[in-house]
């Protein structure tokens, strides 16, 4: 028991910090670029704007291709890229690279769905005013899609939390690494259980905050 506490005391803070670093950075990158891709997919699919099946199909294909790889494989495949971008792939920053690559197409599909679910009548009404797409995006599409976009962020962050544990096992650190290294390899069941409890709490918290925000921006 005292050993368990000692391990946690020495390692938990850093592990949490590393996980936060990986999830937050890759989450932000995933949401920003995913949103952009989502808009692109929506824009080129909508007959009111500039339908362009070729662009849409090409972008869609790339997104699907990345998403069809199991994360474990994606992570291994991207080790050279992580080396190039982060120097050492076996660090939290190295792990962030593969997490970001996974997060972008994941969020892109969620964002596309969020925009596509905006009442087409509302978008039509907006187009009929003669507004430019940038204005329609800022004042119509974005506010209408915002609750769904927030729910998508929650989903993405929780998935990234799971993936970050996998990155941890190949040496990128974080809370997953802690669980495997001590809890599994060194039979410290206490550490394993503690990590599980922390993960459950974090996920519940993220979900709760996301639900509150989504609710706040829904004015129906």
């Amino acid at each position: 028991m005292s050993e368990t506490l000692q391990i946690l005391q020495q390692n938990l803070g850093q592990a949490l910090w590393e996980t936060a670093e990986m999830v937050i950075i890759s989450g932000v990158i995933g949401v920003i670029f995913g949103t952009l891709l989502g808009i692109l997919l929506y824009y080129y699919a909508n007959p009111l704007f500039s339908p362009h099946p070729l662009v849409n199909a090409t972008v869609g294909f790339v997104i699907n291709a990345i998403r069809s790889l199991p994360f474990l494989i994606l992570m291994v495949v991207l080790i050279p890229l992580a080396k190039l971008l982060a120097g050492d792939p076996y660090t939290p920053m190295g792990g962030t690279v593969s997490l970001s690559v996974a997060a972008i197409p994941f969020y892109a599909r969620l964002a596309e769905g969020a925009f596509a679910d905006v009442d087409p009548g509302v978008v039509e009404a907006a187009t009929a005013t003669g507004a430019k797409f940038s204005l329609i995006f800022r004042q119509v599409l974005f506010p209408e899609a915002l609750p769904a976009l927030i729910r998508g962020i929650v989903l993405t962050v929780i998935s990234l939390l799971g993936y970050s544990a996998m990155v941890g096992t190949i040496g990128a650190g974080g809370i997953g690494n802690l669980a495997i290294q001590f809890g599994y390899n060194r039979y410290e069941t206490g550490v394993l259980i503690f990590v599980i409890i922390i993960l459950v709490i974090i996920v519940q918290l993220i979900q709760w905050v996301g639900d509150q925000l989504a609710e706040h921006y829904t004015k129906v």
Partner: peptide, 27 residues
């Protein structure tokens, strides 16, 4: 050319003032 619809098609998550401001911005 203004247009009104059967289902009104207002932006649900913005106030009436903001809905109209959108059209004004468009013009």
């Amino acid at each position: 050319i203004g247009i009104i619809f059967q289902n009104f098609n207002l932006v649900q998550n913005r106030t009436l003032g903001e809905n109209i401001a959108f059209a004004l911005n468009a013009g």
